[in-house]
Design a protein around this nucleic acid. Structure first.
Length: 503
RNA sequence: GGCCCGUUCGUCUAGGGGUUAGGACAGGAGAUUUUCAUUCUUCAAACACGGGUUCGAUUCCCGUACGGGCUACCA
């Protein structure tokens, strides 16, 4: 077996990939990159009944958006172990199931759904195992002839693993240490379903072996079935090349209990999906990080810290820095409640780090749609004034005054600036005065404005407040001189005159 | 119910046999910004509980409680 690190992310296309899945993918990716290994995307679509159209494409696009690029896999180019979609590998699983049959580690079971129901009804804690399989219709209880007959008549059957009655199964989890489970607690899981498809258990073990996966890094929900996988490796004769296991803590709901689920996002006002998703059946729309105005780098950083930390006090990490710092040892054991406030903070930090040009580029389409076409240079300057006020890219919509004048001013803002009405302020004189100011020096402009106030016997504070409302429409916003220089003296004059007329 | 995993400020977490138990987010106060935001300073805030082991336990062990996961011909 090659010692090269090879890990995989193996989602099931049963719906949009949620943020917990993205984190699993991220940890796999970081681990691979850190160790100079490969990261593979494998689509686990063995449940043909739960397939959701578009889900596979969604998974691929989500990974692309956030910047997690598999070396091999569906949507990212084939590698040496193609295909990477389990439905396309269907034939290989039967071969291994038959190998187990031959070796006596598995058996045919013909029990119908009704049979199973009955067995469960007669025993509240029923499980198909060493103690109960004699009650079933299977190749262990039926005569050889009967089995042959049923098989040749194409009767529906499944193949189950045959587990010993009482044996400790032990494996080392890279995050949790030794885990020991006795087979008396396990059941004879179905390996091959009656439709000929493998279950997850068989398929993931076979594929991980064939694809030479070195580390299985997956969610904690798989911990209870890991012993079964260990038994499968053993029975298939692959125990020596069995991958190492690492079971990740789960992402929990921010309120209450349970793991984060699809509904939590829009219920609590934050996305749980990387990209917006429209359910093909119900047309129900679930919000996505991208559409809400998150930067992929920020989401990546935020996700990395939900359950992992570098052991230092640095929190802002680029993908490259994350790769450098990542290790399995620093993964926290307990589940993490999703922290929406922290997510917002990360995003705001990343927006602040953007160059004005980059930010302008990112909000351009939105601004154009909402406020019409903008001069490219103007947009860059406008955006630089409000950069540190944005939590989301979409927050640019809150600053329409940078692109459009307020026509009708609100009562509340107007009520705060009535002083100017009573003063000797004259809008015409102010416009004339302004037009003489041609510099872009904002500090000098501030002095000039104060001088204007003084020489006209107006309180500087009253003037400033009035200007603010005139330009912004509210009592908050960037510094007045910055605004005037950005908007230009003509536009400023127009807004001032209009505002004054409404007092 | 059974089995497995877990438990440090409200949240994300660092740490680890002897520490003022550290940081970040959120919250409070203040400074700067004639506004707001930013920035800076500062305050408050935690080792679930009970037994061991030990000179000493938040740290190791056991139990309890609580939380989570699994318990399908789903992944």
């Amino acid at each position: 077996m090659s010692t090269k690190v090879r890990v995989r992310f193996a989602p099931s296309p049963t719906g949009p990939l949620h943020i917990g899945g993205v984190r699993t993918a991220l940890y796999n990716y970081l681990f691979a990159k850190k160790n100079g290994g490969d990261f593979i995307l494998r689509i686990e679509d063995t449940d043909q009944n739960r397939l959701v159209p578009g889900a596979e494409q969604y998974i691929i696009e989500s990974l692309k958006w956030i910047g997690i690029d598999p070396n091999e896999g569906v949507g990212f180019g084939d590698g040496p172990h193609a295909p990477y979609r389990q439905s396309d590998r269907k034939d290989t699983y039967r071969q291994y199931a038959e190998q187990l049959l031959q070796a006596g580690f598995a058996y045919y079971a013909f029990d119908t759904e009704a049979d199973l129901e009955q067995m469960k009804a007669s025993n509240a804690n029923f499980k198909y195992d060493a103690n109960t399989r004699e009650l079933g219709k299977n190749s262990l209880t039926l005569s050889k002839e009967e089995v042959e007959k049923r098989l040749s008549e194409k009767e529906h059957y499944v193949i189950r693993i045959k587990l010993p009655a009482d044996e400790d199964v032990k494996f080392y989890d890279e995050i949790r240490g030794w885990v020991i489970v006795n087979t008396s607690q396990m059941d004879d899981k179905v390996l091959l379903k009656s439709d000929g498809m493998p279950t997850y258990h068989l398929a993931n073990v076979c594929d991980d072996y064939v694809m030479q996966i070195s580390h299985v890094i997956r969610g904690e929900e798989w911990l209870p079935s890991a012993p079964l996988h260990v038994m499968l490796y053993r029975y298939l004769g692959w125990e020596k090349s069995m991958p190492k296991f690492a079971h990740l803590p789960l992402l929990l709901k921010p309120d209450g209990n349970g793991k984060l689920s699809k509904r939590d996002g829009d219920r609590l006002g934050f996305p749980v999906f990387p990209l917006e998703w429209t359910d093909p059946k119900t047309n129900e729309v679930s919000s996505g990080y991208k559409q809400k105005g998150y930067l992929p780098e920020a989401v990546l950083n935020m996700l990395a810290f939900l359950g992992w930390n570098p052991g230092t006090e640095q929190e802002i990490f680029s993908k490259e820095e994350l790769t450098e710092a990542f290790s399995l040892e620093h993964i926290h054991k307990a589940g993490a409640k999703f922290d929406f406030e922290k997510a917002k903070w990360f995003n705001a930090e990343y927006i602040k780090k953007l160059a004005d040009e980059e930010l302008a580029d990112l909000v351009k389409d939105n601004v154009t749609a909402k406020f019409g076409n903008q001069d490219a240079g103007y947009l860059v300057r406008a955006v630089s004034l409000v950069k540190e006020r944005l939590v989301f890219l979409n927050d640019i919509e809150l600053f329409g005054y940078l692109f459009q004048a307020t026509e009708k001013y609100g009562e509340t803002p107007l009520s705060k600036i009535v002083n100017i009405k009573a003063s000797s302020f004259n809008p015409g004189a102010f416009e004339t005065f302004l037009k003489e100011y041609t510099s872009t020096d904002t500090a000098a402009l501030e002095t000039t404005l104060k001088d204007f106030a003084n020489s006209n016997e107006i309180k500087a504070g009253d003037l400033m407040k009035f200007l603010r409302v005139s330009l912004v429409g509210e009592l908050s916003g960037p510094a007045i001189p910055d605004l005037i220089v950005l908007l230009g003296v003509e536009e400023t004059g127009r807004r001032v005159t209009n505002c004054f007329s409404q007092l």
